[in-house]
Nucleic acid binder design. Sequence first.
DNA 1: TACGGATCATTGAAAAAGTCAATGATTGTT
DNA 2: AACAATCATTGACTTTTTCAATGATCCGTA
Lengths: 152, 152
Amino acid sequence: MGPQSTNVETPRLAAAKIGNDVGLLLAKLHAMGSVLNNRALSDFGLRERSFSVLTLACSGLEPTQRELADFLSLDPSQVVSLVDDLEHRGLVERAQGKQDRRAKIIVSTAEGRRIHTKARAALEVCEQTQLAALSEEENAQLRALLKKALWG
Amino acid sequence: MGPQSTNVETPRLAAAKIGNDVGLLLAKLHAMGSVLNNRALSDFGLRERSFSVLTLACSGLEPTQRELADFLSLDPSQVVSLVDDLEHRGLVERAQGKQDRRAKIIVSTAEGRRIHTKARAALEVCEQTQLAALSEEENAQLRALLKKALWG
DNA sequence: TACGGATCATTGAAAAAGTCAATGATTGTT
DNA sequence: AACAATCATTGACTTTTTCAATGATCCGTA
């Protein structure tokens, strides 16, 4: 089955003290979610990565590619590929930076926003599936803790 | 800066509603942690993956390679490579499965346990760094939520 | 103003990781 | 005994990641 599996049986190995390793817990939960997310996003020709870029492009924050790279923890060259793809499909556009002419600002097209809205709805179903074991309150708590860990 | 960066400045993009996307939050925190972890583990010739395998090998749970693959969300062929590497360096050994002679049980050597203890200590420093923004209680809470989300 | 070092997007090459199908040994089931 | 299923392994293949080099542009400083 491999990395794609969504098998959620409780493995006896969870007993190992590795089950307290935050790094591994994050990796596992992320891996599990990625499978679900990418599966759902494939209906829109998107993957987690390109969806994230599209989301930022739709945010109105007018991110530069450098900012996208920083925020998404990607190499700048990876952002080039992702934006290339989205641009070819008419979902985003490169605009010239306002203060800095080296920078390119990524903005969504109307079609991009249309796709994004639908994809986002599909993803919310995935999140519910992924965090089904958590109550609504715990769900919010998890989000808050992750955000706090990231940005204080 | 790319995926390697440990720059933790609060980016203005965090304002985007993507900041509520659990998948992205997990990806980011995981990516950030991986950089720190792999950097620390390189002193021992390990990476996150091989450390995880070593941890399970040291756990006394006598995991088979198949169990390692399932638990770590890896393809079985990836486990072969990881165990090959650890075995060549004398940190683990392949033992014959007890009920099933097809399966190989991965057990640690004395040297493996020695390295693991030291590596584990180094990783705990990383975790503290990564989760510096969280209180001790929140830290435990995060672990608990992640574990609950994974296996209820 | 002009120089010099730094930053941006981009390219392309190289390394690493992930995916997948096929295989021999072994298991459990009919 | 025969059959399908499972385990570890191999090898081919694709994708992702990493890294250095490049031209354009920005900024600080002389």
